[in-house]
Amino acid sequence: MDYTLTLNGSTYSRGELLDLVSENESSPKEYLRLFWTFIGEWFDDKEYLEVYTSGSTGRPKKIRVLKQHMVNSARMTCNALGLQTGDSALLCLSTGYIAGKMMVVRAMVAGLDLTLVEPSGTPTIDKDYTFCAMVPMQVFNLASSGHLVFSLNRIGKLIIGGGPISSDLKKMLEPLTVACYSTYGMTETVSHVALRRLNGSGKQHAYYPMPNVAVSLNEEGCLVIDAPLVASTRLETNDIGEISPDGSFKILGRLDNVINTGGVKVSPEVVEAKLSGCSNVPFAISWLPDRQLGEKVVLVVEGNGDFILNYKDILLPYETPKKVVRVGKIPLTPNGKIDRVALRMLIFATEL
Rank of each mutant, 00 (worst) to 15 (best):
S88Y: 03
S88E: 11
S88V: 04
A89C: 13
L90I: 06
L93N: 12
L93R: 14
G96L: 09
Y97D: 03
I98K: 01
I98N: 03
A99M: 02
G100Q: 06
G100R: 04
G100M: 04
M102R: 05
M103H: 08
V105R: 00
V105F: 03
V105M: 09
R106M: 15
M108E: 04
G111A: 12
G111M: 09
D113E: 00
L114F: 12
L116M: 08
V117S: 10
E118D: 05
E118Y: 10
E118N: 11
P119H: 08
P119L: 06
P119Y: 07
S120Q: 11
G121W: 12
G121E: 08
P123A: 06
T124F: 09
I125S: 03
I125C: 01
D126N: 15
D128Y: 14
D128T: 08
Y129K: 10
Y129L: 07
Y129D: 06
T130V: 01
A133G: 07
A133L: 06
V135S: 09
F140V: 01
F140I: 03
L142S: 02
L142V: 04
L142T: 00
S145D: 15
H147G: 02
V149L: 07
F150L: 12
L152M: 09
N153M: 05
N153L: 08
N153H: 02
R154S: 10
I155Q: 09
G156Q: 05
I160Q: 05
G161Q: 07
G163K: 08
G163F: 07
P164Q: 14
P164T: 14
S166C: 08
S167M: 10
S167C: 04
L169R: 01
L169V: 07
M172W: 06
L173Y: 00
E174I: 09
E174P: 02
P175N: 12
L176K: 00
C180Q: 08
C180K: 01
C180H: 08
C180G: 03
Y181P: 03
S182G: 13
T183V: 15
Y184I: 01
Y184L: 06
T187A: 14
T187H: 12
E188M: 11
E188W: 11
E188V: 05
E188F: 10
T189K: 13
T189N: 12
S191V: 04
H192N: 11
V193T: 13
V193Y: 06
V193H: 04
A194C: 08
L195H: 03
L195K: 01
R196D: 00
R196G: 02
R197Q: 15
L198N: 02
N199E: 13
G200V: 02
K203M: 13
K203D: 00
Q204L: 08
H205I: 03
P211A: 13
A214H: 14
A214M: 07
A214D: 05
S216K: 13
S216A: 13
N218R: 05
E219F: 09
E219H: 13
E219P: 02
E220A: 15
C222A: 11
L223M: 13
V224H: 06
V224E: 13
D226Y: 14
D226I: 01
